[in-house]
Structures are given as C-alpha cells and as structure tokens.
Amino acid sequence: MTPVLQAEGLVKSWDGNRAVDGVSLALAPGEMLALIGPNGAGKSTCFNMLNGQLRPDAGIIRLGGRDITRRPPRAIWRLGVGRTFQVTATFGSMTVLDNVRMALLSHARRLLGLWRPARHQLTGEAEALLARVGMQAQAGRPCGILAYGDLKRLELAMALANQPRLLLMDEPTAGMAPAERGALMAQTAGIARAAGIAVLFTEHDMDVVFAHADRVLVLDRGRLIAEGAPEAVRVDPLVRQVYLGGMTG
C-alpha cells in the first residue's frame, strides 16, 4: 500500500545549524502518528516543510506517491492536506456555521457574492461537518463567545472541509483542560480511522500521546532518535534520558 505521506532525508538549516537533520517518516491511511521531542527539537520545522511553508534544503516529500516538495501551501492544501494550529484560527465575529462554510467555499474555489449570498451556499455540507465533531448545536453562535475546547473542535471541522487525506495537527490540545484533551483526540482518531485520514500531530501532553497515537517519532536536536509503538518509546532509555525524564507508568 502506498503511504499517504512519505518524507525522506529532510534537512533544514538556519545559519549553519541543522534544525532538521535527515528526518524520514511515513504514514498509512487512518494512522495516528505523534511527533514529540523537547523544545527546539525541530518539530515545527518538520511540520512547516510538510505543508509547504518552508522548503527543505534536502530531501523529498510525497503525498500519495506524488512529489510535493516544492509546492506552496495553497497547492498542498488543495491536494488534500489539512492543518490545525496551536493557536486557533477562526473568525470571531462570524458564526460557527459561517466559519465552516467559508472553509468549504475556499475548497470549492467559489467567490463570495458571485451568484448568491455566501450564507445560502454549502449549508448542508457545513452542518454535516459540524455534526462530525459534535458542534451542530452551536452552529448559530458567534465564535468569539465559544469556550476554547469548542474552538478546537470547530477548527477540526474546518480542517476537514477540504476532504483531506492527511491532517497535520500542531499542539492540538494546547490550552485545553485535561478532560477535553482526551475527548478531542479520541474524536479525531475516530474520524481519521473511519475516513482513512492519516494524522500527524505534535503534542507535549504525554498522556494524550500514549493514549491515542498508533506510533511515536521522537526528535532531538533535529534528528530522529526513536520510532515505534507508544509503549516501546515510553521505555526507550535514550528517550527517557533526553525527554521523558523520570516519567513512570
């Protein structure tokens, strides 16, 4: 089976220092892959190369076997790569439904006001996406008054608007209460596995990582130092030395 995402030998340097040094990874459909490591390990740089915000100095990135290494973020998004961010990116003055509808309009390449008001377009599709993340009851509420956990769920719905094959999630549970973190990631995993969406996520909450990742990659100083099932990574001596410290259980 062709991986949804395959990256080989990624390298990125800043002022002569390698932020990412020969990283390779692959994701299968429906797989939840966690990318973890200490601050400055190169996680964000990897993410930004995978979605086109940064161009690698070396290496190749393939989406479904197709070379996307030099494509810009917009082109990569249209090929089926969704992304959520550590700080949510929604329109606070617009309703929940309208935020999702805007994402759908962008995916459909439609211009506002071209033939009918945007509020009449793609309503059914937007409502279906909100139902997938459990937000349909809040469709008419302005985003500016939502609880932070609900904003994260809305952002997930928006990331699904382009029917992604790959979903990149940068610190998806940052700022959330502990109970909300597990619920969001369980929901994400259920959606991903049902639809065959590959998910790559970074996360500092190790309870979230070990509960919801199928595999874990560990970076340190730009290099991949461990890869495997969560329980194998948890007890890896080098990982415990450089990142997990005295974590037990």
Rank of each mutant, 00 (worst) to 15 (best):
M1G: 13
T2K: 14
T2R: 15
T2G: 06
P3C: 11
A7L: 02
G9I: 05
L10T: 03
L10I: 06
V11M: 07
K12E: 04
S13Q: 14
S13V: 10
D15P: 00
G16A: 07
N17T: 08
R18F: 00
V20P: 03
G22T: 11
V23T: 07
S24P: 08
A26D: 10
L27F: 02
P29D: 13
G30A: 07
M32R: 09
L33Q: 10
A34M: 09
L35P: 05
I36Q: 04
G37D: 09
G37H: 10
G40W: 06
K43V: 03
S44G: 03
F47Q: 05
N51A: 00
L54A: 01
D57Y: 09
G59Q: 03
G59H: 02
R62C: 09
G64T: 08
R70P: 00
P72G: 13
P72H: 09
P72T: 08
P73V: 03
P73R: 06
P73N: 03
I76E: 09
R78Y: 15
R78I: 12
T84Q: 03
Q86G: 04
V87L: 12
T90C: 15
S93A: 14
S93Y: 06
T95K: 08
V96N: 11
V96A: 08
R101K: 14
A103T: 13
L104W: 08
L105M: 15
S106G: 15
R110E: 09
R110S: 03
L112T: 11
G113Y: 11
Q121H: 02
L129Y: 10
A137M: 02
Q138Y: 14
Q138C: 11
Q138R: 15
A139F: 10
A139H: 07
A139W: 12
G140P: 05
G140Y: 09
R141H: 12
C143E: 14
A147S: 11
G149E: 04
D150S: 14
D150Q: 15
L151F: 00
L154T: 12
A159P: 13
A161C: 00
Q163C: 12
P164I: 09
T173G: 08
M176K: 04
M176D: 06
E180I: 05
G182Q: 12
T188L: 11
T188W: 01
R193N: 04
R193E: 12
L200P: 06
V208N: 08
F210A: 05
A211K: 15
A213S: 11
A213F: 00
D214S: 07
V216E: 04
V218W: 01
L219K: 14
D220M: 02
R221S: 09
G222K: 02
E231K: 12
V233D: 12
R234G: 06
V235Q: 14
P237E: 15
V242I: 13
Y243H: 08
G246A: 13
M247E: 15
G249I: 07
